[in-house]
Computed example of a mutant assay.
Amino acid sequence: MARKKYTEVEKDLMKGIAKNLRMILTRKGLSQKELAEGTELSTSVISDYLNEKTLATPGSIQKIADFLKVSKSEIDPTFKSNSDQLYTFNKIPLVGTICAGEGLLAEQNIEDYVYYPFPNKKQPDFALRVKGDSMIGAGIESGDIVYIKAANWAEYNGQIVAALINDCEEGMLKRIKWTEGSAAMQLIPENDKYEIKELHPSEFKICGIYMGHFKPVEE
């Protein structure tokens, strides 16, 4: 069976968990085999966690923490140290694909979850996978994952937004601009191959605003 493909953020989390586990095992003088036996997890699962091949599940982390008699936050940095509750806002639903060109916004079904690496900052509401090259001038390429805050309008002139045109689920990631005194809005690509779209507010709607992006790494 093929291994799950992890994002860069998830790989960083795997590395942190593996490092923490190795330090705790060394401190307590325990082996991988003893950890497996004490948690009733297989030796292969423990090996994968320690060798940064698999992202530990919350259930496994609970078993490991109980056996090692440590807090979950000592193993997984996405747990709050003061209450041992998961940062539920740290896992962002990936709900589909938005075309940064001339295509469709996928149905709003959760495909997976991605991590947002800034727990102390305002959290995105969902993430979208980019398809197309209309925003390459902003460093956003096809296949990138963009973090989106749900909103029905831009916070400032020139902001990058996810927009739906004519209620036809024709999703676009574009920069929105307007001019005082003009009723038309501009949805502007960051690639000269694409045309600027001039639309009235009644002809499109904004479903979210851009909060950053990353390039997933495939194994």
Rank of each mutant, 00 (worst) to 15 (best):
M172S: 13
G137L: 02
A100R: 04
R22I: 11
S81W: 13
D66E: 14
P117G: 08
S44H: 12
I165G: 01
I176V: 09
E107P: 08
S83Q: 09
N51C: 05
K53Y: 04
Y49S: 05
V146K: 00
G171T: 05
S71W: 07
S182W: 12
F126K: 06
I46Q: 01
S83N: 14
A100D: 06
D112S: 05
A106W: 13
E10V: 01
P117A: 08
V161K: 03
V70H: 00
K4L: 09
E155R: 15
K193N: 14
R175G: 02
K197P: 08
L104H: 14
E102W: 14
K72M: 07
K174G: 02
I160N: 01
P124D: 02
D144T: 03
H200F: 14
L21K: 00
G29E: 08
S182P: 09
N20P: 00
E169N: 13
E218D: 15
I209C: 09
V161W: 05
I17Q: 03
M23A: 15
I176Y: 06
K15E: 12
G29M: 05
A127M: 04
L164M: 13
I24L: 02
G16R: 15
I46K: 00
K149R: 13
K149Y: 12
K91G: 13
K177A: 11
I98P: 03
G139W: 05
H213T: 05
Q123W: 10
Y156G: 06
A18E: 06
G101R: 09
A106H: 14
G208Q: 00
V130S: 04
S81C: 10
L94Q: 01
R22Q: 15
G212E: 07
A127N: 04
M135G: 04
E111D: 11
I92M: 06
L55R: 05
T7V: 01
L199F: 03
P58M: 09
L104S: 13
Y194N: 08
F67M: 02
N109P: 08
E37C: 10
Y115D: 07
A100Q: 07
S44E: 14
W153D: 15
L55W: 01
W153P: 09
E37F: 11
I61C: 01
E74Y: 06
E37K: 10
L86H: 11
L50Y: 06
N191F: 03
H213M: 08
